[in-house]
Design a protein around this nucleic acid. Structure first.
Length: 856
RNA sequence: GCCGGAGUGGCGGAAUGGUAGACGCCAAGGACUUAAAAUCCUUUGUCCGUAGGGGCGUGCGGGUUCGAUUCCCGCCUCCGGCACCA
């Protein structure tokens, strides 16, 4: 009987099919059409298709971009809104080993699963532009870009101390290691000397820093990148070694404190250590160095609390006063930063101070202004301190100068004497770009038997991954690709020389460094992308994704883009003009005393406490990151089955501000579900299946009140959608529906405009209602409604009357009531007079259209 | 330790100098129903009062202002990032 209700399970597949059949979201490519309209490129960070499938965190960002894409299309933009797969990488390879299948097979399966889940949400992606970083049609161009980097002299092989992860059997980039562990898995990482591919990202450090300023990115992400790049200005200073015909250079940001340098420190790995150590100290130094070498990165950071070190027996000569100061070895100095050697100024550096106190080295004050005696605490302020005890017989006198001037004076003096120079130092290191894995892009590089590294010519691409039977390293420790047969591994050059292919592969980041460019022209088999497409669509207007990529992906991708810019292959300096980070979605979890987790179905609430249903065991309730082990993962499929994709979409955005973390609450989905049912009943009479009998063909103005709410709603939905404040856009549409539900008439024109507003948010429902109300054309292609500012202003407005800043009365007045009239009306009010208690107002503040405040 | 961000009802949150708590959830009461679900209506920050009404209230303490959730200063707590970077 009542088959006229809103049934998402019926209408959602129907409209998805229709959109697909009509190619409704195909990106325009006809030159005439491209010329005639403005463009909008809205991009999601493409997912890594894991075996676990989609969780509700993924669609949050995807829904936001889809709403924007759909609105922009209706507003007359050519929209590029693509989706693809970041499909190379470690987890796929591990799953392959586990299941005894080829990684490509695993990935195809996972991708099909992801695509199916994503498509159920009705996103308006142009699936004809789907990319997969692990397909050979894609990675041949990743290899091609590597050749560009190589040509620009930005790729090199070096024997470097690298982060080696024994558990994974591969090296990792600095960005992938934190506190001595791999950030993804927590596996311990150690230092190892290995010959590896590096990319010279450090050459771009300054540009990567400078160009952040003009980007419309969250300030926190920019700041994280600035910190990661870590620029500091200072000086390289050369110290002679007493009794040796040798010297060494230190980097310092405080050359002004040279007179306070009472010792120097070399990193344990510093090449000079062995040479200068005196016989008497040799045993102690050797012991210390081997201990330091055996410490893992983890230990070296964990032991941060106490300083250790040993005296070499040698002395350096301080260039400013020719004094001899002892040279120590200590592991608080890192070989990998600066020169691996420092001058220590315990009076004005906390670490040096701690070290000096531990080993009873002299502490000299050379900058005055500290609040405690210099023996007790280092004075590190570098703005207002004034130099003291800082003149010497070598001609430098800094006494009386403030720190910034003293820094410059010292740098100038060092330059004149040839003892040093200004130096800009970055924390950023070159990018370790090779991995000992199978499931990644092979390098387009061969090593000739006579020892030369030769890049392949472009026409030799792609270098396809060979089939191998095992994905483990070889018995003698070479990467898995070394297991390939000689028909792959061995190459003969045109000049007759024989060579072996590079067996390392590129890291997972490689494919994601340029995928936004491949979307521009994804089926091009002659070039990575065409110039015309790049000129038209770039830069990306909006890029949405999780904040976990703030440094890694977003720094690497900017670097590659700048290289491509220098090669004349892209026309913008930066790839992503606007970046938005969506917040993580958390979930309620329940855990008993013993740490055992329970699913929310197994738990009930009694008087503000939670207990298991079965046994009544008390459990703690908390809000945490979703994870399998915590039994609190929300699966989007379950939500769609219960409420439909439109409710899912709407709830994802209604939960709260897009950028903050927030907990998933099923009750909230019910709320938006109710809203969608109410929208349905505005249009459909659920008893007859016909149109709601309140719908009229009269002009919108025939229901003035509802029409005004509509125009306010249009205005707010547009501005809030553009700024991604979609929670308040939805709230405003709820206000409209509340008003319309009780309205006596529903002019067709008004409903039509409303459906177009809601369409980007709840596209299936709105297409269905639109087809009932308006007929032929797809709602997705309808034109966007415009608001009339005059209708957004009410004729009668409420004016608040305050006495001494407290609200005491509310007056309803015509909207343009003059200041004087407002004041007169307020003072005439009986309630107000009561609060004045006969006193004369001292002052009256009138804000037209808002309030009157009477001060007595 | 340093650098960001945040703290508002029972809950998610709204309001960036002008009516604090929009919108939604939960809860209570009512209508419809044989009944339930669904739907619709009403109430819902807190305290005092039968009520009219009033006091208090945006982490804490100060300040600026006619007026502060919003701006400034000092603290507390939580979240995120970085951390022997010379």
């Amino acid at each position: 009987m009542e088959d006229f209700n809103y049934t998402p399970s019926v209408i959602e597949p129907k409209w998805q099919q229709r959109w697909a059949d009509e190619g409704a979201f195909r990106t325009p490519s006809d030159p005439e059409e491209l010329r005639s309209k403005p463009k909008f490129y809205v991009l999601d960070m493409f997912p890594y298709p894991s075996g676990a499938g989609l969780h509700v965190g993924h669609p949050e960002g995807y829904t936001a971009t889809d709403v924007i894409a759909r609105m922009k299309r209706m507003q007359g933009f050519n929209v590029l809104h693509p989706m693809g797969w970041d499909a190379f990488g470690l987890p796929g390879e591990r799953a392959a080993v586990r299941e005894g299948k080829h990684p490509a097979e695993i990935m195809t399966r996972n991708i099909d699963n992801f695509r199916g889940q994503i498509q159920r949400l009705g996103f308006s992606y142009d699936w004809e532009r789907e990319v997969n970083t692990s397909s050979v049609d894609y990675y041949r161009w990743t290899q091609w870009i590597f050749l560009k980097l190589y040509e620009q002299d930005l790729a090199y092989m070096a024997d470097e101390p690298v982060n080696w992860c024994p558990a994974l059997g591969t090296v990792l980039a600095n960005e992938e290691v934190k506190d001595g562990r791999y950030v993804e898995t927590g596996d311990v990482v150690e230092r190892r000397l290995m010959r590896q591919w590096m990319l010279k990202i450090t050459l771009y450090a300054q540009r990567l820093l400078d160009d952040l300023d003009d980007l419309d990115w969250p300030e926190s992400v920019k700041e994280m990148q600035r910190n990661w790049i870590g620029r500091s200005r200072g000086a390289d200073v050369t110290f002679a070694i007493d009794g040796h015909d040798r010297d060494f250079t230190v980097f310092t940001t405080r050359p002004d404190t040279l007179f306070g340098a009472t010792y120097c420190v070399l990193a344990p790995e510093h090449p000079l250590v062995a040479e200068i150590t005196t016989d008497g100290q040799r045993e102690a130094v050797d012991t210390y160095i081997s201990e330091a070498a055996n410490k893992s990165e983890l230990d070296r950071t964990d032991l941060a609390k106490t300083k250790s070190g040993v005296f070499t027996g040698a002395y350096a000569v301080n260039p400013v006063n020719a004094q001899k100061i002892p040279i120590w070895v200590a592991d608080y100095v890192l070989l990998s930063y600066g020169t691996g050697a420092i001058m220590a100024v315990p009076g004005h550096d906390e670490r040096d101070h701690e070290f000096a106190r531990t080993f009873d080295l002299p502490i000299i004050e050379v900058v005055s202004g500290g609040s405690k005696p210099i023996e007790e605490e280092a004075f590190t302020d570098c703005n207002d301190g004034v130099l003291v005890n800082s003149s010497g017989d070598q001609g430098l006198d800094l006494n009386g100068l403030k720190v910034p001037k003293a820094v410059n004076a010292t740098i100038a003096w060092l330059g004149d004497k040839g003892l040093g120079e200004e130096k800009i130092q970055y924390r950023l290191r070159d990018w370790l770009f090779s991995r000992q894995r199978y499931w990644g892009e092979p390098f387009p590089i061969i090593h000739t038997d006579d020892g030369e590294v030769v890049p392949l010519p472009e026409d030799a691409l792609p270098v396809a991954l060979p089939a191998i039977d095992q994905y483990r390293p070889t018995e003698d420790g070479r990467p898995p690709l070394a297991r390939a047969g000689d028909d792959w591994l061995r190459v003969t050059l045109p000049d007759g020389r024989t060579a072996t292919r590079e067996t390392n592969t590129m890291p997972q980041w490689a494919g994601s460094c340029w995928y936004y460019l491949r979307y521009l022209d994804p089926t091009n088999d002659r070039e990575a992308w065409s110039e015309e497409a790049e000129n038209y669509w770039m830069p990306v207007d909006l890029y949405v994704g999780g904040v976990e990529h703030a440094v890694l992906h977003l720094l690497y991708v900017r670097f590659w883009h700048k290289v491509l810019y220098d090669c004349g292959l892209v026309h913008t300096k930066e790839p992503f003009q606007k970046l938005f980070n969506q917040g993580m979605i958390l979930a309620h979890s329940y855990r008993d005393e013993g740490g055992k987790y329970y699913h929310s179905d197994e738990v009930e609430e009694k008087e503000d406490a939670f207990f298991t249903r079965e046994t009544g065991t008390p459990v703690n309730h908390q809000i945490e990151k979703m994870s399998k082990s915590k039994l609190n993962v929300v699966n989007p499929d379950d939500v769609i089955n219960a409420y439909g994709a439109d409710a899912m979409r709407l709830y994802e955005l209604f939960m709260g501000p897009l950028e903050v973390q927030k907990p998933w609450q099923m009750k909230g989905v019910e709320g938006v579900n109710r809203f969608l049912h109410r929208v349905w009943r505005l249009v459909v009479d659920t008893k007859t299946g016909e149109l709601n009998t309140r719908i009229t063909n009269d002009a919108a103005a025939s229901n003035d009140q509802l029409n005004r709410v509509l125009h306010k709603t249009i205005k707010k939905v547009v501005s809030d959608t553009e700024t991604l404040q979609m929670n308040t856009a939805i709230a405003q549409m709820m206000i409209f529906v509340n008003e319309a539900t009780t309205a006596e008439t529903l002019p067709r024109e008004i409903l039509s405009a409303f459906l177009r507003l809601l369409g980007p948010y709840a596209p299936h429902l709105c297409e269905e209602l639109w087809s009932k109300l308006d007929g032929e054309e797809l709602l997705a292609h309808a034109s966007w409604p415009l608001h009339d500012e005059a209708l957004c202003q009410d004729d009668l407005i409420n004016i608040v009357v305050q006495v001494n800043g407290k609200k005491r009365e509310e007056l309803q007045v015509p909207k343009d009531t003059a200041k004087e009239d407002l004041e007169r009306l307020a003072l005439a009010s009986e309630k107000v007079r009561k609060y004045l208690e006969g006193k004369e107002p001292r002052r009256v503040i009138v804000v037209p259209g808002r309030l009157v405040n009477i001060v007595v």
